[in-house]
Amino acid sequence: MIEWYKKVVFENYANFRGRARRSEYWYFRLASTIIFLLFVVLGVIIYAATDNGPLALGLAYGLLMLYALGTMVPSLAVSVRRMHDIGKSGWTILVAMIPLVGPIWILVLLFTEGDSGENYYGNDPKNEIEEINEIGNVELQ
Rank of each mutant, 00 (worst) to 15 (best):
M1V: 11
W4D: 03
W4L: 06
V9Q: 01
F10T: 06
E11H: 15
A14W: 03
N15D: 05
R19C: 07
A20M: 04
E24S: 10
E24W: 00
W26C: 09
Y27Q: 09
F28L: 01
A31D: 04
A31V: 15
I34C: 14
I34M: 11
I34Q: 11
L37K: 01
V40K: 09
I45D: 03
Y47W: 12
A48P: 07
T50C: 13
T50G: 11
D51L: 08
L55C: 08
L55F: 13
G58H: 06
L59Q: 00
A60I: 03
Y61I: 13
G62R: 07
L64G: 01
A68Q: 09
T71W: 07
V73A: 03
P74H: 02
P74S: 01
R81W: 09
D85L: 03
S89I: 07
G90S: 02
I93S: 00
I93C: 04
A96C: 13
M97D: 14
I98P: 07
V101D: 11
V101G: 00
V101L: 13
V101Y: 13
I104K: 07
I106V: 04
I106T: 00
L107F: 10
L109Q: 08
L110F: 02
L110T: 10
T112W: 05
E113G: 13
E113N: 15
Y121P: 01
Y121T: 01
G122Y: 03
P125S: 06
E130P: 12
E131R: 05
E134A: 12
E134D: 14
N137Q: 14
Q141R: 11
